[in-house]
Design a protein around this nucleic acid. Structure first.
Length: 270
DNA sequence: ATTATATCCTGATCGC
DNA sequence: TGCGATCAGGATATAA
């Protein structure tokens, strides 16, 4: 689920719910997360919630004035659910891995596959990803071209590398390449300057549109029920194997690269 | 240094 | 309906 637009959506929706709240308790339920020094945040107040790469960052201020940052990586199935009031009776606590309890309400970290990670750091720098933020000014075709020259990987695989560009995952990689009219099989260093330019434009366009649509399908934060992402209706190639290309009508193809599905139109993308 | 493979986990879905 | 095989939107440690 969570690529850049989804993580951005989570952060944006949580921010107004969490800002200003004081941590009453930070409970770790999954033994896999037990190394986390969650007690360090007891009594801390949340100052902000935002996205960095694919992580949701929650910023805290301790009573002493010291800052702390919680980095949450959702990986495949992680979710952060805001629960405004304590529900009485049956609560689905399956896959509940951690809880941050406030005077009113709590934040739940739910993660079926348990790939998600939590980390607490003293400096925000420690959560900063290596790669370029595609929605920042640092992301331009000159920079991209220079980076792409260094890799012989297929471009689809390369786009997933978080140490180069952050935030692109398996869905958006396919969508961006379709929009760019570049084959996922193309060797990264074989892209021409005008294609790098196109890639920059397509990346920004796709990611921004997905953010505007609140991402691609996932559950609501209050009741963890309603689907709030809308971007799936804009997907042009992802999960559309055999269906007609939105542009040329020829069937969309699927292939596996680095053990992950890639979808593309072999007519439109060269 | 870059690139391919195995691995971490669990649930949903597919084919028989 | 049951059962095993396969797949899933992520990333990294290890091997080549």
């Amino acid at each position: 689920m969570p690529e850049l637009p989804e993580v951005e959506t989570v952060a944006r929706q949580l921010a107004p719910k969490l800002r200003g709240r004081m941590v009453k308790e930070f409970l770790i339920l999954d033994p896999k997360l037990k190394g986390l020094k969650s007690v360090a945040l007891k009594g801390a107040r949340i100052t902000d919630v935002f996205r960095m790469g694919k992580k949701v960052v929650i910023a805290f201020k301790l009573a002493t004035g010291t800052e702390r940052f919680l980095g949450v990586h959702l990986r495949m199935t992680g979710r952060l659910i805001w629960v405004a009031k304590q529900t009485r009776g049956k609560v689905d606590t399956r896959h509940l891995r951690a809880r941050i309890v406030f005077d009113k309400g709590e934040l739940r970290f739910i993660d079926a596959r348990r790939f998600g990670t939590l980390e607490i750091v003293n400096n925000l720098e420690e959560l900063k990803p290596q790669g370029i933020e595609p929605l920042s000014r640092d992301f331009d075709s000159i920079t991209l071209s220079a980076m792409m020259l260094k890799s012989k990987q297929p471009i689809k695989v390369w786009l997933l590398r978080q140490d180069r560009i952050v935030g692109i995952g398996n869905i958006y990689a396919s969508e961006i390449l379709f929009d760019s009219k570049i084959s996922p099989l193309r060797k990264t260093h074989r892209t021409k300057p005008n294609e790098a330019e196109k890639l920059v434009k397509s990346t920004i366009k796709i990611l921004q549109k997905a953010i505007d649509s609140c991402g691609t399908t996932f559950s609501d934060f209050q009741d963890s029920r309603g689907e709030i992402g809308n971007f799936q209706s804009f997907l042009k190639v992802y999960d559309r194997e055999g269906q007609p290309c939105k542009s040329c009508k020829s069937p969309i193809k699927r292939l596996v690269q680095a053990q992950r599905s890639t979808y593309y139109c072999s007519i439109c993308q060269k």
